[in-house]
Structure formats: C-alpha cells, structure tokens
Simulated scan of single mutants.
Amino acid sequence: MNANDDGSQARRGPAGPSGSDPGESPPATESTPPLPCPAVVAAPASGPATDLGPATDLGPASEADPAPEAGPGDDPDPDLGAAPGPVTGPVTGPDVGPGTAPGAAVAGVATGGSVGGPRTGVAALSLRYRLGAALALAVVAIGVCVHLGMTFLHVAPANTVSKEHGEAIQQWIYPEFEQNWKLFAPNPLQQNISLQVRADIRTADGGVRTTRWYDLSAEDGRAIDGNLLPSHTQQNELRRAWDFFVATHDDENRPVGGRGALSESYLRRIVVMRLDRADAAGPGDVVDRVQVRSRTTNVPPPEWSDEQVSTTPVDRTLPWWPVPEDEARGGIG
C-alpha cells in the first residue's frame, strides 16, 4: 500500500530536499577553507631593500568542490566569520625623492623634525648682533693682552721696553694692580705689620669724641683664618695700601712725588670705609678726621739660626687727616 494513498493511515509531513525523512540528518558537505590574507610588509627604515626571492606557488586552495553559493535569504555561518578579501590599492607613504635613503622620509615625518634643524647660540643672532658680539670679544681679548703685558713688564727685570715706557707702566699698575713680587727674584716678607686706625667723631649736638684704636689687620686675619677661599681684599687690600703709602712718603710722612697724594687719599678712603662698616660713628654722628698707625714686628728666626733680631714692636703714627664731607659716610668721594 502506498503511503500517499487516501486510504493509508500513515502520517504525512514535509518532504526533505530529496524526499527524505525530515528526521534524518542531511549529508555533510565539505566547505572550502578561507584563503590566507597576504601580510603587508613595511619597508625597512634604512639600507637597501632585501631580496625575498621569487614568490612560491601555493597551488590551488583546495581540491574539494566549491561550496554552493548562498541564496538571498541565507545567513553566513557565524563560526566561519567574515570571509577575508584581497587588499585593494597600493600602500601609500611619504614621497621619497631621488637620492634619499630608504626610510629617511618616513623617519623625518615621524619625528616632525627638519633636515637642517634650528640654529642655536651666536649663530641664531642676526648679522648685526653677531658683529657686535665679535667686536666685544675682540675688545676684551685686547684688554687682557694689554694687562698681562703691563704686569709682565712691571715684575720683570729692567729692560729696554720698561725703561722706555716706565711711566705708562706705572700708571697702569698703581694702585689697583700693584704687585709685591719680582720675576726671578722673590722677596718674601719677614715682618708682621698691623695697621690700626682711630677717628674723631662729630656728634649731633656739636661735640667731638675720639674712638678707640681699631685693629684692621686683625679683623682681616680673623676673616681669613679657616676660610678656604678668602677674598683678595681681605688678603691684600689693606697691606698693599700701606706699602704704597710707605713707598711714596719719607720718614717724616711727607709725600714724595705726584703719587704721594694719591697713596694718602687711597689709604684714607679704605680706613674710613672700614670704620663705617664697624659703625664707629654711631647713628646721627659723622667721622670728622682719622689717624692711622702701623705696628711692625720682626718675624723671629728659627731655633737653628744664629741670626739675632729684635722682636720689640715699632709704631709709626701718622698725623690726623681731615675727612671730606662726601667721604664721611663711607669713604666714597
């Protein structure tokens, strides 16, 4: 009996694609595996391109029959994912001109720099300022050379140049750059000289009072003691001012030559400034005049020496010097 006959009691159901029972599983079909996506190889940053050799023929993707095309209403299998497609269009990059190393333009774009780079230092200045800097450097170099030459001629033994231009050399050296040594003939000091000063102070009520003696050399000694880098003024200013005064005055403290008055003014200004730092006058009072004295003591010889010297201090007291009004407040006239 046929199941399709009207008299048949068999249950009817939808037929499969080939008339098979819907309960049966359809035969599995072998699908074509996806083609591998070709990798994009970046160009090397520098150096010649590497020869990768001829391309290898991978052959057909699969020997199986191609899968049936999907219909308009069919959805792709989610397990397989989107089918990879070929890479379309060339890989674009920065324009590399002729003569440029491979990867150089790429590196320049990546870093954002320029080929030449910004100018720095003096080169970044305009032409006018560069000329000014060169002129200033030349003036400084000439000044240094002149000073070194004058100092050398001053400390060197007498020669034709120093005799011919002795006055110009003396004016350059004294008093600021005076030297206490001679080339090839050192003369170390063998005395301790202490310089002291006192002052007459004119008070606000019209009276006059005299200060004690201020030991300026002892103050410099305390500032130098234990100081790894003492200043030039602490070491030499006061001592050289006194040596300058002694060299230009006789035993009666009278100036000898034109530099005598200069050395007296130089020493007076220094001691007035020192008194102002010590606040010797006090508030409201003014330094009216100053008096300087030196106390010289010979350095005792060593124990193994037979030399006999006196160690008794010798004082030399100078006359009172009136202080000009413009110097009374600190020694600057």
Score class of each variant (00 low, 15 high):
residue 167 E to S: 11
residue 41 V to F: 05
residue 138 A to T: 12
residue 109 V to T: 07
residue 75 D to Y: 01
residue 23 G to I: 02
residue 60 P to Q: 01
residue 333 G to C: 10
residue 309 V to H: 08
residue 3 A to E: 07
residue 219 E to V: 12
residue 283 P to F: 07
residue 151 T to D: 07
residue 311 T to P: 04
residue 248 T to A: 06
residue 289 R to L: 10
residue 273 M to A: 12
residue 3 A to K: 03
residue 215 D to T: 06
residue 227 N to C: 05
residue 23 G to F: 04
residue 171 Q to F: 10
residue 7 G to V: 13
residue 163 K to F: 03
residue 290 V to C: 05
residue 127 L to T: 11
residue 315 D to K: 07
residue 85 G to L: 08
residue 149 G to M: 03
residue 121 G to R: 09
residue 61 A to H: 06
residue 212 R to D: 15
residue 135 L to N: 06
residue 300 P to T: 12
residue 60 P to R: 03
residue 307 E to F: 04
residue 192 N to D: 15
residue 39 A to N: 02
residue 23 G to N: 08
residue 89 G to P: 07
residue 187 N to Q: 12
residue 183 L to K: 03
residue 14 P to E: 13
residue 58 L to W: 04
residue 280 A to T: 05
residue 242 W to Y: 07
residue 22 P to V: 00
residue 196 Q to V: 14
residue 37 C to E: 11
residue 170 Q to F: 11
residue 57 D to L: 00
residue 28 A to Q: 13
residue 115 V to P: 02
residue 170 Q to D: 13
residue 59 G to H: 06
residue 132 G to T: 14
residue 150 M to L: 14
residue 67 A to I: 00
residue 28 A to E: 06
residue 86 P to L: 15
residue 125 L to T: 09
residue 312 T to Y: 10
residue 123 A to R: 11
residue 331 G to E: 07
residue 115 V to Q: 09
residue 169 I to D: 03
residue 79 D to G: 03
residue 28 A to F: 04
residue 121 G to F: 09
residue 10 A to R: 12
residue 144 V to D: 13
residue 268 R to Q: 14
residue 310 S to Y: 04
residue 82 A to D: 13
residue 318 L to D: 02
residue 310 S to Q: 02
residue 142 I to W: 13
residue 161 V to H: 06
residue 225 D to N: 08
residue 23 G to V: 03
residue 133 A to H: 06
residue 140 V to Y: 03
residue 261 A to T: 15
residue 174 Y to Q: 15
residue 148 L to H: 12
residue 65 D to I: 12
residue 330 G to A: 10
residue 248 T to H: 08
residue 292 V to D: 00
residue 195 L to W: 13
residue 284 G to T: 01
residue 270 I to D: 06
residue 295 R to V: 15
residue 93 G to I: 00
residue 77 D to P: 00
residue 278 A to W: 04
residue 298 N to E: 14
residue 80 L to S: 00
residue 100 T to L: 05
residue 237 E to S: 08
residue 278 A to Y: 02
residue 245 F to A: 04
residue 157 P to G: 02
residue 161 V to S: 05
residue 154 H to N: 14
residue 197 V to W: 01
residue 213 W to T: 10
residue 26 P to E: 08
